[in-house]
Amino acid sequence: MTMSKSFDLRRVRPLGAALTAVALSLPFVLPLAAPGPDGFVREAVAQEMQKVDTSKLVTIGGAVTEIVYALGEGDRLVARDSTSMYPEEALKLPDVGYMRALSPEGVIAVNPTAILAVEGSGPTDALAVLKTAGIPFETVPEGYDRAAILKKIDVVGDFLGVPEKAKALEETVGADLDVAIADAARRPQSERKRVLFILSFQNGRIMAAGRHTAADGIIGLAGAINATEDTFDGYKPLTDEAVINAKPDVVMVMTRPGAGSTDEEVLAHPAIAVTPAGQNKAVLRMNSLHLLGFGPRTASAIRDLNKELYGNVSQ
């Protein structure tokens, strides 16, 4: 069979050249698309992040600030929020206010080149002003378990352009958490204390912690039981009946500036008085920023709470 005279080999050459170019480029394209924490994608993301000028950084949220220092990048900080009280070096920085009551003017006044804020910072209108002010703004996701802590480190490290430092810190923090969590988990379920976490206690109204809160997270990790169990999410005012039905063995309140009532006032509450905690005068006060921060020091917080509840670290 003979080839048609109308078939022009010259028309094949452009197509062949294009296919050859694609084939030659594949060895270079495929590694860039390789998945995995050690692949080119992670490095590319970090390089893209590093294009943001983070030399004058404001951090909002105690865990975020701790992570920046733990990564060895504290010299970038020019200001922090009032919950950022660790390490001690952070206290030398200007305070731009409480993380949930930020003033955009106060943040902008320190002339930052970038802002790192934990999820839940606010108010919303203040964040809107900051995000439209032309200052790069990164939100660090909140969470109350091991995975969430490591995710925070990952996000902060990528934003600062130091993913390898973040990976090393994640390994160290993760290993410490594994040991602390495993130690607490050895306590038999029948021996675990029921803990009622009181966020606020004003005019006889008890605001307690339910599911999906930092308090619920740390209580569980420390080998205890949230006395409100699965009855509600977030923080909620409790009726006297609900307090009595919770049957707490321990009432936990936080030590912080301006914190509410004394132990005597808590124990005198009619509903608390008839619970096991009230009868045994079991009121536990702990540092809220350390206990509820869910940052690099959470393994220490787990051990501290476990010791306070049970007298020693579970074996």
Rank of each mutant, 00 (worst) to 15 (best):
F159M: 14
F159E: 02
L160F: 07
E164V: 14
K165M: 00
A166S: 12
K167L: 01
K167S: 04
A168G: 10
A168Q: 14
A168N: 11
L169G: 10
E170C: 10
E171K: 15
E171T: 15
V173I: 13
G174F: 04
G174M: 06
D176H: 07
D176F: 05
L177S: 08
V179A: 12
A180R: 09
I181R: 14
A182T: 14
A184F: 07
A184S: 06
R186A: 07
R186D: 04
R186V: 01
R186Q: 13
Q189H: 10
Q189Y: 07
E191Q: 08
E191L: 05
R192H: 10
R194T: 09
V195W: 06
V195H: 08
F197W: 11
I198P: 02
L199F: 12
S200F: 02
S200L: 08
F201E: 07
Q202I: 15
Q202F: 14
Q202G: 12
G204Q: 05
M207G: 12
M207P: 08
A208N: 11
A208I: 10
G210P: 00
G210A: 00
G210K: 01
G210H: 00
R211V: 12
H212Q: 14
H212T: 13
T213A: 01
A214V: 03
D216C: 05
I219G: 03
L221P: 00
G223V: 07
G223E: 13
G223P: 04
G223C: 10
I225Q: 09
N226H: 02
T228I: 02
T228Q: 04
D230F: 13
G234F: 04
G234N: 01
G234A: 06
G234Y: 01
G234R: 00
Y235N: 12
Y235I: 11
P237F: 00
P237G: 04
P237Q: 02
P237K: 01
L238H: 01
T239Q: 03
T239F: 00
T239K: 02
T239N: 03
T239A: 03
D240E: 11
E241W: 01
E241F: 05
E241Q: 06
E241H: 02
